[in-house]
């Protein structure tokens, strides 16, 4: 009777010990899983944030590229489509800008004879450089337009 009670108590103790050990191990696993879940959540949030920043940068670069292309098209259109008429006299002052003028000077009327004073001088090359903008994809566009007029250095030889 007493031995039986001892065995029963021993079995009970072993049962509690086993159950406690299992629960402790299970809790530890749960903590590890919780930690891993929290870490993965942080990593996911970080990656999403970085991806959003990347997309913002890409959008800015695309806008800059689009603005550059628009500027290029507008600049090319004005240089060829809307030349302001000018007389021979005014072409002298306009031609003194030389290179890198943003508003290309229109050619003088071709009816004027090359008298050597410079009205119908040969064409001058005006280089217009536009570009810039923001972002990595921003690039400068260089357009070269040839306009006439000027003091007529080449005309002096005629």
């Amino acid at each position: 009777m007493k031995k039986s009670s001892l065995y029963k108590m021993g079995a009970l103790c072993l049962t509690f010990l086993g159950a406690g050990t299992f629960m402790a191990f299970d809790d530890a696993q749960t903590d590890e899983q919780k930690l891993e879940t929290a870490y993965q959540q942080l990593v996911t949030d970080f990656k999403m944030e970085q991806d959003a920043l990347c997309k913002t940068q890409a959008l800015a670069a695309a806008q800059a590229e689009w603005a550059a292309s628009q500027t290029e098209s507008i600049g090319g259109g004005t240089s060829t489509a809307t030349p302001t008429p000018s007389t021979g006299g005014s072409s002298q002052s306009a031609s003194q800008g030389g290179n890198s003028t943003s508003t290309p000077t229109p050619p003088p009327p071709p009816k004027k004879e090359p008298t050597g004073k410079g009205g119908a001088a040969a064409g001058k090359t005006t280089t217009t450089t536009t570009g810039g903008g923001k972002g990595a994809a921003a690039k400068g566009k260089t357009t070269t337009t040839t306009t006439g007029g000027g003091k007529g250095g080449a005309a002096k030889g005629k």
């Binding site: 970080f46 991806d51 990347c54 997309k55 890409a58 959008l59 695309a62």
Partner: peptide, 22 residues
């Protein structure tokens, strides 16, 4: 890793954004 991913995806993102703008 995020910078590398961004660099590799930048061209696609820029093209998509440009298409959207257009």
């Amino acid at each position: 890793e995020a910078a590398a991913d961004c660099e590799s995806n930048m061209a696609a993102y820029t093209a998509a954004a440009l298409d959207s703008i257009k």
